[in-house]
């Protein structure tokens, strides 16, 4: 098919384009391209919102957005790669002798150039998106520093403990008031741990002798799971605890019940 078209006498550029898009392999690849691109778009839009936990903070929201949108943006590139690959797969040659030789195309300057520039642009989108998000989070953290409540988190083999200095309580459950920015000062009593309140979408390692800090603002009321995300020995799997984002009144009541005082 393709070979037959190649043998025609020098067509004009316009004719060449028209011929190109009539070639069976091009038509088939185009259809496959649409199919695979759609697959990836659907995958991105459906998979993450379905499988990720309830979004309870701005940080998890931005993480989820990155995963959904990056899948959608990369869908055409993945679609093109898979279209060409699956077209070749469908074109397979079976038997014990090799297929006839294909066209001796050693390279194609414009294709390489367009491909490289496209992937550069794609990388730039990812970089700029990421840097913008990071910057936004840093700005929000600085803005909220005054109004935030502080929770001192200590990881030890194999339990999280939470100290609320302003409230004067120490617990092994992480309860937070909704809508109030929170600063976690995280450290370890022994080996490295990683503090991960899952539904809040932030994470930071707990190290001995150093305090690491993360900020977030819970946006929804609900249960949260606190896990350890850095292998810390025998019972790493059980270094989990629960907690909740609650209304301000509930939080104050809980603090009082723990013997603390409301700031």
């Amino acid at each position: 098919m393709a070979d037959h078209i190649e043998q025609q006498l020098a067509p004009t550029p316009g004719e060449r384009t028209a011929i190109f898009f009539k070639r069976t392999d091009v038509v088939r690849t185009s259809l496959l391209f649409i199919f695979w691109t759609a697959v990836f778009v659907v995958l991105g839009v459906v998979f993450y919102p379905k499988w990720m936990p309830l979004v309870m903070s701005t940080e998890l929201k931005s993480a989820e957005a990155i995963m959904v949108w990056f899948t959608v943006i990369s869908a055409p590139i993945a679609g093109l790669v898979l279209a060409i690959t699956s077209n070749a797969f469908l074109n397979m040659h079976r038997g014990d002798t090799p297929p006839p030789d294909g066209p001796a195309v050693r390279t194609n300057g414009p294709v390489v150039a367009v491909w490289t520039i496209t992937s550069l642009l794609f990388a730039l989108v990812a970089i700029i998106w990421g840097l913008t998000e990071m910057n936004g989070q840093a700005v929000a953290a600085a803005r909220d520093a005054k109004s935030a409540i502080t929770v001192e988190v200590t990881g030890s083999q194999w339990l999280w403990t939470f100290n609320y200095p302003a409230q004067g309580i120490e617990t092994h459950e992480l309860n937070l008031p909704v809508g109030v920015p929170v600063v976690f000062d995280v450290k370890s009593a022994d080996v490295n741990h990683s503090f991960w309140p899952v539904q809040l979408g932030v994470k930071v390692d707990a190290n001995a002798q150093v305090t690491t800090v993360i900020h977030t603002t819970p946006t929804k009321i609900g249960a949260i799971d606190v896990k350890c995300a850095e292998l810390c020995g025998l019972y790493h799997a059980y270094m989990e605890t629960n907690g909740a984002v609650m209304s301000k009144d509930d939080f104050n009541a809980w603090v009082t019940a723990q013997g603390g005082h409301n700031a």
Binding site: N91, H93, N108
Partner: peptide
């Protein structure tokens, strides 16, 4: 994919 393009892969 450039090498695969317009080829008939020997499976």
């Amino acid at each position: 994919i450039g090498t695969l393009w317009r080829g008939k892969p020997w499976m």
